[in-house]
């Protein structure tokens, strides 16, 4: 029962990832692309945690944490970049 639900959740997250990717490709402005990228990274964090669950390896949670940290910094840096264009 729980296994089926986990697979269903993974499928939903996968479809969400593909939809956000469509917005990332379509754009049209650079701001739209970063917004899609921000959502993509957060969906990926759920993805990484699901992989950790499937493999049963807790070390992947550290990967998710560091990924969350770096993606936050990345989004801030890119936002500052398009704001000032330096």
């Amino acid at each position: 029962m729980a296994d089926v639900l986990v697979y269903l959740a993974a499928t939903l997250a996968g479809v969400a990832f593909v939809l956000a990717l469509i917005r990332f490709i379509l754009g049209p402005s650079s701001a739209d692309r970063i917004i899609a990228f921000d959502s993509l990274t957060i969906i990926s964090i759920t993805g990484i945690v699901l992989v950790a669950l499937a493999e049963g390896r807790g070390i992947y949670l550290d990967v998710a944490l560091v990924y969350a940290l770096l993606s936050f910094l990345g989004v801030i840096v890119v936002a500052r970049y398009i704001e000032r264009g330096f």
Binding site: V6, L8, L12, A13, V15, A16, I22, R23, S39, T46
Partner: peptide
């Protein structure tokens, strides 16, 4: 888990 990922999906639909 399913509820959470369903919200992710709705958000992605909204994004599009």
């Amino acid at each position: 888990l399913v509820g959470g990922t369903a919200f992710l999906l709705f958000g992605a639909i909204g994004l599009v």
